[in-house]
Design a protein around this nucleic acid. Structure first.
Lengths: 357, 357
DNA sequence: CTGAAAGCGCTAACAC
DNA sequence: GTGTTAGCGCTTTCAG
């Protein structure tokens, strides 16, 4: 098959070390450099990264485990991460676990055998032990989007709570008081955070009101559970939740939907019910600009900085990888502190929120 | 780090060949088998696929090059292919070339160095030489979606022409005569095919008509170019093309849009123009069920069997890979005939086509 | 069925 | 700087 270093050593009459040195950016005498380059050209030599990996115990490959590749939110993140990683010479092995915990574990096992140098993971339900074997063998792990329970692990997160709180506050500023929310499943980290943001906004406003109206003081206006409906982060769930909210709350003037799939579902249902947006109902959705722009009226949405998330994860990983290359083996098992990067969400105004103040 | 075969040989008192045989499914004496399994358990041994790859010259890794990971059509294909490949023990290295020919070449180079066993590629603009180096070194290549010009290469294609023709015919059956089409860029294979399907349908119907009306016989009714508008396969392009068609053809009653992005763009424009679908204009779009269902009225669309495309590509590749494992080295350079798999598109009825017959 | 030994293509001391 | 040498962890003859 392909020519090896030995071949080009023979061709040039030089030793293996010289060739290796050349290939790795070392100093080589000018005329030898030319000879080597000619031989490489002539023999179509290309380094065998597999052999190099065996020797250096570094595959220059990053594993990525995610719940669903076929999902705009994740694929945007991966695109950014893969791009950055590859520009640093790293390949990525992507494993889609279809939101299945068992498959997720298998994927981790698979990547472990492949000896990837590091792991980026958007956990489905993985327990700590799943990725702890990576870290025990000195390979860095970066979590995205969802935090582990006992999470002493690097991660890149978005301020879900703040984003939801902000969205709801904006509705309030436009005079909305009865605001519904379509929530995600309880067992998903981001879903809980977003719900908490909503609740904080509601509580804050009721506190402000009770401060003004002294007669109401002390009376705590808790979240009205009728205004919450679980949409399970799916299209069908979002549609069903929308209907429920609408039927249970005739006086609701606005709804906040906390992920993209549910936003699609809710819009379908809104259309089926013949509700006019924003005249009869104001809507704030989540993620995916394209969809928001294709709907009538254009949707006001919370956006997540997918590109930055992917880049942040890749950079975090790369910094660990490069650290390790520099420090000697003796210090490599020093206790590393974990880092959490928080990124801000965005907000894009459409025409789906009415001012009723 | 991890234990090696040597460690478990020492632990069990057996030779390396026995361990290797066990690991590769060979026959091992029962009591030795147990000893080996215990040692593996105790030492947490796991095969090093990198070393194995160096020895066998087979990395069990497939390279995938695609124009855009962040695209539902491609990501659905990849998801299916990756799934199947991984169930056969193959990892996938995905390279997103951002629809850039230069990046595409770099990706091929990159994967070549990584010694992937095969390549799945959805070409952006790659010339034959880009992947010919794979095939020269005996590694199979499967092309998806777009055919190469001088294409003696395995590929998985969809009957774009037939799909477009069928869509237009369905419009005709409902009484539509002035049917517009939003086309893709000339230099993309699928765009040309879809346009040809449209033209065939138009020509066929005019022939049928002229057969009935003898006075028109011989008068060839060619495609009316005013009814074609290039949308560049993008959202913005689709919107612009929609507007042009609408302005140029006051009597147009239906439009066929030939990819997903342009469908989104066209819908945006249709909404901006205040056109009522299907009362004033019938619409047939392309790809992406979710979008079709979220729009009012539900869109009638042509669908592509993305899952099957991915599976077909993976299977084609796997069949070559397994062939090679079985034949001896002497026969491995036999001339292989290339195979092309054609898949049928689907059609999902929505409520965006009116019967005006 | 099992053991010994060679070697895949590369890097990394170590001498010169 | 450059050549020599010894492996990285595995598979694979070849004997026994």
């Amino acid at each position: 098959m392909g020519a090896t270093m030995k071949d080009i050593a023979r061709e040039t009459g030089l030793g293996l070390a010289t060739i290796s040195s050349y290939l790795n950016g070392g100093n080589v005498r000018e005329k030898n450099r030319i000879k080597i380059e000619e031989a490489i050209e002539k023999l179509h030599f290309e380094v065998n990264e597999v052999a190099r990996g065996l020797k250096t115990n570094r595959t220059k490959t990053i594993g990525i485990i995610l719940p669903e590749l076929n999902n705009i939110f994740f694929s945007e993140i991966i695109t950014a991460a893969e791009d950055l990683l590859r520009s640093h010479g790293y390949a990525t092995m992507i494993c889609d676990c279809r939101s299945d915990v068992k498959r997720e574990e298998e994927a981790a096992e698979f990547l472990l055998h492949r000896r990837v140098d590091g792991l980026i993971m958007m956990p489905t339900g993985a327990e700590k032990k799943v990725f702890d074997r990576f870290r025990k063998s000195g390979r860095p792990v970066v979590l995205i989007d969802r935090r582990m329970e006992n999470g002493d692990c690097d991660c890149v997160l978005v301020d879900n709570e703040g984003a939801a709180q902000n969205a709801v506050k904006r509705l309030m500023k436009k005079g909305h008081k009865k605001i519904g929310m379509i929530t995600g499943p309880d067992n998903v980290y981001t879903a809980r955070e977003r719900q908490r943001g909503y609740e904080l906004a509601i509580q804050e406003s009721s506190k402000a009101r009770s401060a003004q109206q002294s007669d109401l003081k002390g009376k705590t206006d808790r979240t009205d559970t009728k205004l919450l409906a679980d949409g399970n982060y799916t299209i069908a769930g979002g549609a069903k939740a929308m209907r429920k909210l609408y039927e249970d709350n005739p006086d609701m003037t606005a709804v906040f939907i906390s992920n993209y799939e549910m936003t699609v579902g809710a819009m379908m249902e809104i259309n089926d019910l013949g509700i006019k947006v924003p005249e009869e109902l104001s809507v704030i959705g989540f993620d995916n600009m394209d969809f928001a722009r294709a709907v009538v009226p254009r949707l006001t949405i919370v956006t997540q900085p997918t590109e930055e998330i992917g880049q942040a994860a890749a950079n975090l990983l790369l910094s660990h990888l490069e650290d390790k290359d520099e420090t000697s083996d003796k210090t490599s098992d020093k206790i590393e502190t974990t880092e959490t990067i928080w990124l801000k969400t965005g907000f894009v105004e459409g025409e789906s929120v009415a001012d009723i103040s």
